[in-house]
Amino acid sequence: MRDYLANGLAGRHTDLPETTAGTIRLDVTEDGWTDHWYLTIADQVVRVTRSADEAELVVQADREVFDELASGRARIAATLLRNDLTAQGRLPLLMSLRRLFPGPQDARHPRDVAREGGDRR
C-alpha cells in the first residue's frame, strides 16, 4: 500500500478529467495508529505527500481495505457501501479517486471488448 501511494498514485493520470481538481486526505488506520496521505489533484497530475492537513475530501479505512484497493481486489464504491470505508467532504472527488486505483486484474476496457466483437455466448 505505501509503495502504491508513494509511487503508483503520484504523477500524470490521463484518465482523470482535465477539470478534476482538489485535495484528498487518506487516513489509513492500523493497530490504533493512523497514517495520513495527502493527495493534490490538478491538471491530471496527482501529487502525494504525508500530511494530516485539512482536505476537501477525507477518506478513512483500515490498512487492509486500502491494500485491497491498491491491488485491484476491491472497488471504492463497494467498500463504501459495506461501510469498510468512510468519506467526508466533497464526494465527487471520491469518484475521481476510484480512477486512480487499478481495476481487477482480469478487467478489460469496453472499447477493447467491442473491437474484438464482444463476448458472444
Rank of each mutant, 00 (worst) to 15 (best):
A55E: 04
E56F: 06
E56G: 06
E56H: 01
E56V: 01
L57Q: 01
L57F: 03
V58G: 04
V59R: 03
V59A: 09
Q60R: 14
A61R: 00
A61W: 02
D62V: 02
R63S: 08
R63C: 03
R63V: 14
V65D: 03
F66Y: 05
F66K: 01
F66E: 00
F66Q: 00
D67H: 08
D67S: 15
D67G: 08
E68L: 09
L69F: 07
A70D: 07
A70Q: 02
A70M: 09
A70Y: 06
G72T: 04
G72Y: 03
G72V: 09
R73L: 14
R73M: 09
R73K: 15
R75E: 11
R75P: 00
I76C: 03
I76R: 00
A77D: 11
A77G: 08
A77S: 09
A77W: 06
A78F: 06
A78N: 12
A78R: 11
A78W: 02
T79V: 13
L80D: 00
L80M: 10
L81H: 07
R82S: 06
R82F: 04
R82N: 08
R82K: 14
N83H: 10
N83G: 04
D84Q: 15
D84F: 06
L85M: 14
L85G: 00
T86A: 08
T86I: 03
A87F: 00
A87G: 08
A87L: 01
A87H: 02
Q88R: 10
Q88A: 12
Q88M: 10
R90F: 06
R90D: 13
R90P: 02
R90N: 15
L91A: 10
L91R: 14
P92F: 07
L93F: 03
L93H: 00
L93I: 01
L94T: 08
L94M: 10
M95D: 09
S96M: 08
R98V: 05
R98F: 02
R98K: 10
R98D: 14
R98T: 12
R99E: 02
R99D: 11
R99L: 15
L100F: 03
F101H: 11
P102M: 14
G103P: 08
P104K: 08
P104A: 14
P104N: 04
P104G: 02
Q105D: 14
Q105E: 14
D106K: 11
D106V: 11
A107M: 05
A107K: 04
A107N: 05
A107L: 07
R108F: 09
H109S: 06
R111C: 08
R111W: 08
R111P: 03
D112Q: 11
D112Y: 10
D112V: 07
V113D: 13
V113Q: 12
R115S: 12
R115P: 01
E116M: 15
E116F: 11
G117E: 08
G117C: 05
G118T: 13
G118D: 13
D119I: 15
D119S: 12
D119W: 10
D119Q: 07
R120T: 10
R121A: 15
R121V: 09
